[in-house]
Amino acid sequence: MTRLILASGSQIRRKILENAKIPFAVKTSGVDEDAIKQAWTGTDPTELALLLAEAKAGAVSAESDQLVLGADQVLGLDGEMFDKAKSAGEARDRLLHLRGKTHTLHCGLAAVRAGEVIWRHRQESHLKVRDFSDDYLDHYLKAAGDVLTASVGAYAYEELGAQLFDAVDGDYYAILGLPLLPVLDLLRQEGVLER
């Protein structure tokens, strides 16, 4: 049976696959994401997320003949794109910038086998951050811990971060960084799961 390799160190992506009882292994790619972002000349954040997903999956696929899944996510707001915050201070600034506004999470997935991209998926989610108080922000920053630098929005939507939002238009799993239903369909087509 074909085995899936997840080309991502993301704990939440791993948890999504584990909860769905999907057999898989994890191998991080070692791809220099910053170099790819700096060399990229496009303007569509979803295309950047796809490019990063393909690069990760392709790097891992070079060492395996199994199906490799890469994923990435880019946060976009008012024509600007954001990476993960590098510190709690940067996370605070990010959340203040998002406060009261609607941003978009651009998710890109790519599956690679034997060095060839065989599947791509793009998905967008729109999230409206509520106009939270400074006191709430201080509470959130203290309680959130490592979440602040683990996601592009400095929140874990599946946990305490849900309290930051007024409205969400998008798939729950896509917001977490791995749209599950399209992945399940791919895995059935590729023989990783029973049809």
Rank of each mutant, 00 (worst) to 15 (best):
L50I: 14
A85M: 04
Q66T: 04
R120T: 08
L141T: 08
V74H: 11
G177K: 06
Y140V: 01
E47F: 00
E80L: 01
T41I: 00
E90R: 11
V129A: 10
I118G: 11
I175R: 03
L52P: 06
D72M: 13
V112R: 07
H139P: 00
L160Q: 09
R122L: 02
D166C: 02
Q123G: 06
T41Y: 01
L51P: 01
A53N: 06
S151H: 01
E54F: 06
K101G: 08
E158V: 04
R122Q: 14
Y173K: 01
R94E: 14
A49C: 09
V74N: 11
A144N: 05
H97N: 12
G170D: 14
A114C: 09
S125Y: 06
A88Q: 12
L77P: 11
V60N: 12
L51K: 13
T102H: 08
A59G: 04
L75I: 04
H103L: 09
A111N: 05
L181H: 13
E158N: 04
L95V: 08
P179W: 02
V117Q: 03
R113W: 03
A55E: 09
E80D: 13
G58W: 04
L48Y: 11
L69P: 14
D146Q: 02
L95D: 11
D138K: 08
D138Y: 05
K128L: 08
D83E: 15
H139E: 15
T46Q: 14
A156K: 13
L50D: 12
L52I: 15
G145M: 02
L51G: 02
F82I: 03
L141M: 14
Q163L: 08
A55S: 14
L48W: 07
L96Y: 05
L51D: 11
M81P: 05
H126P: 01
L180N: 06
V112I: 09
V117D: 07
D78G: 08
G58T: 15
T41R: 15
F132P: 03
G76S: 15
R92K: 15
L127M: 08
Y136K: 00
L137M: 01
K86Q: 12
K86W: 15
Q163K: 11
D138W: 02
A57P: 05
I118T: 12
L160K: 12
A71K: 10
S125E: 06
L67H: 07
L164Q: 05
S151I: 00
G108W: 00
D146A: 06
